[in-house]
């Protein structure tokens, strides 16, 4: 791989390249890397744990997407708004949604209309 079709490759770039290369070359390679690589490969082929991890990841995905998510979706319509319920209807919260504000002002029908998309 040969480079340098670069525009504006100036003196600083040559200097930086030289400095960074020398810094990187100061560190010797790890010893016995090849032997260690073969040991790791031998362990990997014997060791069933990576496959076990894959199986567990698949099970987790199925549990999350096929069991937990449908249950969560099924309970969406009966969500309980405790902060609306815990105050008298005439207390209006600034941070409440438009629907809740309309309901709090005892114009429930307006709130229902808004909620159903009529308004």
């Amino acid at each position: 791989m040969i480079r340098r079709e670069v525009y504006k490759h100036g003196a600083f770039d040559n200097y930086a390249s030289r400095v960074l290369k020398h810094w990187a070359f100061e560190f010797p390679l790890p010893v016995n890397g090849r032997a260690l690589l073969f040991v790791q490969i031998a362990q990997e082929t014997k060791d069933p744990i990576p496959w076990l991890n894959v199986v567990l990841a698949i099970l987790r995905w199925f549990f999350h997407n096929l069991i937990l998510k449908p249950i969560d979706s099924a309970f969406q319509p009966v969500l309980y708004f405790s902060d609306v319920d815990s105050y008298p209807a005439y207390v209006i919260h600034r941070d409440s949604s438009t629907i809740h504000l309309l309901m709090a002002e005892q114009t429930i029908s307006s709130g229902m209309m808004l909620n159903s998309g009529i308004v």
Binding site: M1, I2, R3, R4, E5, V6, D13, A16, S17, L20, K21, A24
Partner: peptide, 14 residues
């Protein structure tokens, strides 16, 4: 980018 350019001498395209 710096490492690939300055240390490994790769082109911008590479």
């Amino acid at each position: 980018v710096v490492v690939l350019y300055y240390i490994n001498d790769l082109s911008l395209k590479e």
